[in-house]
């Protein structure tokens, strides 16, 4: 348990560091935030007045502590472009992104691990080569490029899937989703609105696929490499020497041993997906954090940028913490150190 406390306290430290860095960065960006707020036509006097209102005249450390205090109290500042509270903007958009990440990651983990296991089992044969090519394509293709390709092929030419958006526009009138948790697909399921569910999933396929490509490639290669590594260990030789069936050896023993590093990679690539959503949401016009982030970046909306960065840092730490927990559950040796 002490280890968990250690992890938690170090996570807090990282969070402080992240907030400080983003804060500092936002202040040193060579553009006047006040100017950005009131627009290019404002007078110098207006701008000076606003600087006082926004607290920009105070020393940087004080500004920082003020910022931290406000952040902790749920005041994440106001977006310069939408003039809305940043936290509200984030809360409104987060569910769409999380659902997208959830489906992308599920796809990547399920197919990545299965393909990796399959490739390991048929190492050096035809199946292995096919999976290798798929994996390399997934890892090396940029998300926006893959997104466009899939859009052109499956939405454009074949017209199997919608090109953009989270739901059809008409859905709002035909089968409006009752808001429960704010997660639209999830809400549609628990309220029994299956028409909306189907519609949502239909829209989900292409963006999730695009987003998952990198993780899928990484996971399938990792799973294969780990399994082969584990299969060459002494204890696998021992299990075979004791006549345990090949099924048991491969699926129960070897796979269990290969899982911990796969979990790590899953965690890491989930964190990577957060940046992936920037492009994917842009391409598929997905109403989530990603497109919000891109817009904020383009308009140097520093409260929004800071909020998103902080959110990403929190997301990253949460994922790492979960990975640690799962690790400890799966590998008894983790508790040693």
């Amino acid at each position: 348990m002490r280890i968990m406390w250690n992890r938690l306290s170090s996570a807090l430290l990282v969070l402080c560091a992240a907030s400080f860095i983003t804060f500092t960065l936002a202040r040193v960006i060579p553009s006047d935030p006040a100017l950005a707020y009131i627009g290019p036509k404002a007078t110098a006097a207006d701008s000076a007045k606003l600087r006082i209102t926004l607290g920009l005249d105070q020393p940087i450390p004080i500004q920082y502590f003020k910022y931290v205090w406000q952040t902790l109290n749920g005041n994440w500042g106001y977006s310069l472009s939408t003039k809305q509270p940043v936290l509200q903007e984030i809360i409104d958009r987060l569910p769409a992104t999380l659902e997208l990440i959830f489906f992308a990651m599920s796809f990547a983990v399920i197919f990545g691990v299965v393909m990796g296991v399959y490739a390991a089992k048929y190492r050096g044969r035809f199946q292995d080569s096919v999976i290798r090519i798929l994996a390399i394509a997934g890892v090396s293709m940029p998300a926006f490029w893959l997104g466009l390709l899939l859009q052109m092929l499956f939405a454009g030419r074949l017209a199997w899937f919608p090109a953009t958006g989270q739901f059809d526009i008409e859905l709002k009138y035909d089968n409006p989703i009752t808001k429960v948790t704010g997660f639209p697909v999830f809400d549609s399921i628990i309220t029994g609105n299956f028409a909306a569910t189907m519609n949502g999933l239909h829209h989900m396929v292409l963006p999730a696929l695009t987003l998952s490509a990198y993780s899928f490639g990484l996971l399938s290669r990792m799973a294969r490499a780990n399994l082969l590594e584990v299969m060459s260990q002494d204890y696998i030789k021992v299990a075979r020497a004791y006549g345990l069936s090949e099924r048991l050896v491969f699926f129960k023993l070897a796979l269990r041993n290969a899982l911990p590093p796969i979990v790590t990679v899953t965690g890491l690539s989930t964190a990577y997906l957060i940046t992936g959503t920037f492009f994917v949401e842009q391409v598929y016009n997905w109403p989530g954090i990603g497109s919000f982030a891109v817009n904020s970046l383009l308009s140097i909306d520093y409260p929004a940028i800071m909020g998103i960065t902080l959110l990403a840092a929190i997301g990253y730490l949460v994922i790492n913490f979960i990975v640690d927990l799962i690790h400890a559950k799966m590998d008894p040796r983790v508790w040693m150190r």
Partner: peptide, 23 residues
């Protein structure tokens, strides 16, 4: 393959690596 582990069994050089670490 049918008789190993029952009629023929084996012990190995390195007991630390011969047991699976996570079971």
């Amino acid at each position: 393959a049918a008789i190993r582990g029952s009629e023929i069994t084996m012990i190995f050089q390195n007991p630390q690596s011969a047991f699976n670490p996570i079971f």
